[in-house]
Amino acid sequence: MYSKMTEIAVGLFVAAGVVALVMLAMKVSNLGAFSDTEGYTINARFENIGGLKVRSPVRLGGVRVGRVNAINYDQNRYEAVVEMTIANGYDRLPIDTSANIFTSGLLGEQYVGLEPGAEEEYLGSGGVIELTQSAIVIEQLIGQFLLNSAE
């Protein structure tokens, strides 16, 4: 009823479809680059997180080491709490590490940039970064600039 050629063609079809899916998963999406499971969690408190989003990258010296897991607002301290997952390979962050929110390029995406401190102790799972600098909000900058030039 159907020939060997049909079988082979259908086999190729299915294989090509699976290859396309694997390419989408590994090459196109973040699945291959980083996944949430293999890492430990640290928190950082910011006055203002600007345009930071869940899944924004976390970089250490420009190298991607993790991603933002959750963003909450602490009503008691009036601060945003950013929960980050850091890959297990990067487990020697000193406790006085500082966190900044940067923008890649003028209009690019925002990310958390970590700067290691000098202490001998390291941040563990659930550790909190105390030294933070908020995102630069461009509207505020422009406002200040206008104010200054008006004086």
Binding site: L24, A25, K27, V28, S29, N30, L31, G32, A33, R55, P57, R64, E109
Partner: peptide, 10 residues
């Protein structure tokens, strides 16, 4: 890779 999420997008 940084901005395409496997679960949400793909």
């Amino acid at each position: 890779q940084a901005n395409v999420d496997f679960y949400d997008d793909i």
